[in-house]
Simulated assay, not measured.
Amino acid sequence: MSTGRTIATICARGGSKGLPGKNIREFAGRPLIAHTIAQALACEALAGVYVSTDDERIAQAARAAGATVPYLRPAELATDQAGKLPVIEHMVAHLEQQGIAIDRIVDLQPTSPLRESSDIAAALKEGPGAQLVVSVTEAHDNPYFNLVEQGADGLVRLSKGNGAARRQDLPAVYALNGSIYVWQRAALAHAAMHGLWSVGVAPYVMPRWKSVDIDTLEDFEYAEWLHARHFGQGAPRG
């Protein structure tokens, strides 16, 4: 029987170029990151919510929202070139050094404020036996139907298939939405060294409207519109 905890990690670097300060920009009455923290805190399966950041303003906002910020992220893990998996592994290893036994890590993207606590709980139940569960949404485009690649001759061709199949007969394809990653502990350690696709991955499907990832001002404004439409402007949510 498992004796370790399931925890949430939230990685929020201060140096956003697309929308400076986005993680603490006010979204529906709260700093953007506070929405993800509230969703994690409302999920009973999670034993702790930990934020990794290099920015003291983000750290303060995260603590005010109820998360734990054990340290400010080292500079070498806060560059544009630093991968996310080593950042999560660094946090988990730190917690383990403090005597916390961890079995699963739910990494939540702070720029995906439209997920709900119920999505986190559902993702935790997906893919029994999978090393990693990732949240996805049905893709707008399909490589069998309207995604094309340019060849050496300068001409474009379908990425997959020959275009003969009916659209309704084609396999469903999904896009990673970045919102939720449920890692088994050993898989995270392996992927931090060898890459995400080196482990067995199962999907958790989310609707498109919940899958907005905020990177630009236009994304932010669109997410605000969706939040107001589905939850009511400023409505508190877990």
Results as ranks from 00 to 15, higher is better:
105 I>N: 15
105 I>Q: 11
107 D>E: 00
107 D>Y: 15
108 L>A: 11
109 Q>R: 10
109 Q>K: 01
110 P>R: 05
110 P>I: 12
112 S>V: 06
113 P>A: 09
113 P>E: 13
113 P>S: 11
115 R>V: 15
116 E>D: 05
117 S>W: 11
118 S>D: 15
122 A>G: 01
123 A>Q: 00
124 L>F: 08
124 L>H: 03
124 L>E: 01
125 K>D: 06
125 K>M: 09
127 G>I: 07
127 G>E: 06
127 G>P: 01
128 P>N: 09
128 P>A: 12
128 P>W: 06
129 G>D: 05
129 G>W: 10
129 G>F: 04
130 A>C: 13
130 A>N: 10
131 Q>H: 06
131 Q>I: 00
131 Q>D: 13
132 L>K: 05
133 V>D: 04
133 V>H: 03
133 V>T: 13
133 V>E: 09
134 V>Y: 08
134 V>M: 14
136 V>D: 00
136 V>Y: 10
136 V>F: 13
136 V>I: 14
136 V>E: 09
137 T>H: 12
137 T>W: 07
138 E>N: 05
138 E>K: 10
138 E>G: 04
139 A>V: 12
139 A>E: 12
139 A>S: 15
140 H>R: 12
141 D>R: 15
141 D>I: 09
141 D>P: 05
142 N>Q: 03
143 P>A: 15
143 P>E: 03
144 Y>A: 02
144 Y>F: 05
145 F>C: 04
145 F>N: 10
145 F>I: 14
146 N>Q: 13
147 L>D: 15
147 L>G: 06
149 E>I: 07
149 E>S: 02
151 G>A: 13
151 G>S: 11
151 G>Y: 04
153 D>Y: 05
155 L>E: 04
155 L>H: 13
155 L>N: 15
157 R>D: 08
158 L>T: 06
158 L>I: 13
159 S>G: 08
160 K>D: 05
161 G>P: 00
162 N>I: 02
163 G>V: 11
163 G>T: 15
164 A>R: 11
164 A>C: 07
166 R>K: 08
166 R>D: 07
167 R>G: 00
168 Q>H: 00
170 L>Y: 06
170 L>T: 00
171 P>R: 08
172 A>V: 02
172 A>T: 09
172 A>D: 00
174 Y>M: 02
174 Y>E: 14
176 L>E: 15
176 L>K: 03
176 L>H: 14
180 I>W: 12
181 Y>R: 14
183 W>A: 08
185 R>I: 06
186 A>I: 03
186 A>Q: 14
187 A>N: 04
187 A>K: 05
187 A>R: 12
188 L>H: 05
188 L>W: 08
190 H>V: 10
191 A>G: 12
191 A>D: 01
191 A>K: 03
192 A>D: 10
192 A>M: 03
194 H>K: 04
194 H>M: 12
194 H>L: 12
197 W>P: 02
197 W>I: 12
198 S>E: 02
199 V>F: 10
200 G>A: 13
201 V>R: 08
202 A>R: 01
202 A>Y: 15
203 P>E: 08
203 P>A: 07
204 Y>F: 15
204 Y>L: 11
204 Y>C: 06
